[in-house]
Amino acid sequence: MDALKSAGRALIRSPSLAKQSWGGGGRHRKLPENWTDTRETLLEGMLFSLKYLGMTLVEQPKGEELSAAAIKRIVATAKASGKKLQKVTLKVSPRGIILTDNLTNQLIENVSIYRISYCTADKMHDKVFAYIAQSQHNQSLECHAFLCTKRKMAQAVTLTVAQAFKVAFEFWQVSKEEKEKRDKASQEGGDVLGARQDCTPPLKSLVATGNLLDLEETAKAPLSTVSANTTNMDEVPRPQALSGSSVVWELDDGLDEAFSRLAQSRTNPQVLDTGLTAQDMHYAQCLSPVDWDKPDSSGTEQDDLFSF
């Protein structure tokens, strides 16, 4: 819950932080000083300027060897085509990944977070970031790969997607708890209302004896509580940590079903599988986004697919 609360507080303090972009060759504004600060901008989305290598189908939802083989196929196909790589912007948030063309600003792909089953910074092609997700059109699994400016960037994108998945799962947990509370309150309110109706004398007997209905007592009954809980029953509950912020979080049926399955089948359902080692994760978390744009010590960066 700490990640969720800190993310909400950060967004309320400075929503404009989320509009910064990394990996864009110096076009961005001043960047936060450390990885923790940038992680807090996830709610509205972190932007990464990358190059799209392509996509291939895979048979399993996750796995280092599986993704490595898929990336190898994608890279080989991209090299064989001889075409310049498409420059894209990857927007990562707890909602998922939005992929747009840098030149036309046209939407290429919009992947809900619950469809993503794996992401990684490839070991062999260490400047490549990739994720595996279920197609929104059918049940097939797709591996999408992107060329980053350097290994640090690939690791940073991988960690960002993993963190977005974690925050999304926490949102789901909060929403589920809130819905259970509202359902319980609604049920209790309905029981109270039913009890009051059972003990209320029939209207005919009131008229016969000349008694008047006590409207004041009726007004004191917990009807307002019942209506408050039943009027918006169809509205999706939102985490309290975000009250007053500009973010509107809505959970669709697909996300609810997917996270429910994860909660039942996995020990740590909030953790998205990645190909990063503990050492890689520690190294990337210690980086400032400013470091992502620094040239690798191995030599001059080449803006070309064939540089790796």
Rank of each mutant, 00 (worst) to 15 (best):
D2E: 03
D2Y: 11
K5T: 01
S6E: 10
G8H: 08
I12E: 11
I12K: 02
R13F: 14
R13N: 15
R13K: 12
S14E: 10
S14P: 14
P15M: 03
L17G: 03
A18P: 06
K19D: 14
S21Q: 08
S21D: 12
G24T: 10
G25F: 05
G25R: 08
G25P: 02
G26F: 06
K30L: 14
L31F: 14
E33F: 13
E33R: 13
N34C: 03
D37N: 12
R39W: 15
E40W: 04
E40Q: 12
E40V: 14
T41E: 13
E44R: 05
S49Y: 07
S49F: 15
L50N: 13
K51S: 12
L53Q: 15
L53Y: 13
M55V: 14
V58R: 07
Q60T: 12
P61H: 08
K62D: 05
G63H: 04
G63L: 05
G63W: 08
E65T: 09
L66I: 04
S67N: 09
A68F: 12
A69E: 14
A69S: 15
I74R: 15
I74N: 09
V75A: 06
T77F: 08
K79H: 01
S81R: 07
S81M: 14
K83S: 12
K83L: 10
L85G: 13
L85F: 11
Q86R: 15
K87Q: 08
T89W: 12
L90V: 15
L90T: 08
V92P: 13
P94G: 06
R95D: 09
I98P: 15
L99D: 12
L99E: 09
T100M: 14
D101C: 12
N102H: 11
L103I: 11
L103H: 03
N105Q: 04
S112Q: 06
I113Q: 02
I113V: 13
I113D: 09
Y114W: 02
R115G: 15
R115Y: 11
R115A: 07
S117L: 06
Y118A: 01
T120S: 12
M124E: 12
H125G: 14
V128D: 13
F129W: 11
Y131R: 14
I132V: 10
Q134L: 15
H137F: 10
N138R: 15
N138Q: 12
Q139I: 13
L141W: 04
E142I: 12
C143Y: 14
F146T: 14
F146D: 11
F146G: 09
T149M: 07
T149S: 11
K150S: 04
Q155A: 12
A156T: 02
A156K: 11
V157T: 00
L159S: 10
L159H: 11
T160E: 09
A162E: 02
A164T: 10
A164D: 00
K166E: 14
V167E: 01
A168G: 11
E170I: 01
F171K: 13
Q173N: 07
Q173A: 02
V174A: 00
S175C: 01
E177A: 00
E178A: 01
E178Q: 01
K181D: 08
R182G: 11
R182D: 14
A185W: 10
S186C: 10
Q187E: 06
Q187Y: 05
E188M: 05
E188D: 14
E188Y: 05
E188H: 05
G190F: 08
D191R: 14
V192F: 10
V192K: 14
L193N: 03
G194V: 13
G194H: 05
G194K: 09
Q197A: 01
Q197K: 05
C199M: 08
P201S: 04
P202D: 03
P202L: 11
L203H: 02
L203S: 15
K204S: 12
L206Q: 07
L206C: 14
L206K: 07
V207Y: 02
T209W: 08
T209F: 13
L213M: 15
E216F: 13
K220G: 03
K220Q: 11
A221E: 04
P222Q: 08
P222F: 04
L223G: 15
S224L: 07
T225E: 08
S227L: 12
N232T: 12
M233T: 07
E235L: 10
L242T: 09
S243I: 14
S246M: 13
S246G: 07
S246H: 02
V247R: 00
V248P: 00
V248E: 04
E250C: 03
L251E: 08
D252K: 15
D256Y: 15
S260V: 03
R261S: 02
R261K: 00
A263R: 12
A263Q: 00
S265E: 03
T267K: 06
N268V: 03
P269T: 02
V271N: 02
L272W: 02
D273R: 08
D273M: 07
T277Q: 07
A278I: 07
Q279P: 07
D280C: 10
M281Y: 07
M281N: 04
H282V: 08
Q285N: 07
C286Y: 14
L287I: 14
S288M: 06
W292I: 00
D293Q: 06
K294N: 08
P295I: 13
S297P: 11
S298C: 07
T300F: 02
E301K: 00
E301G: 12
Q302V: 10
D303L: 07
S307I: 03
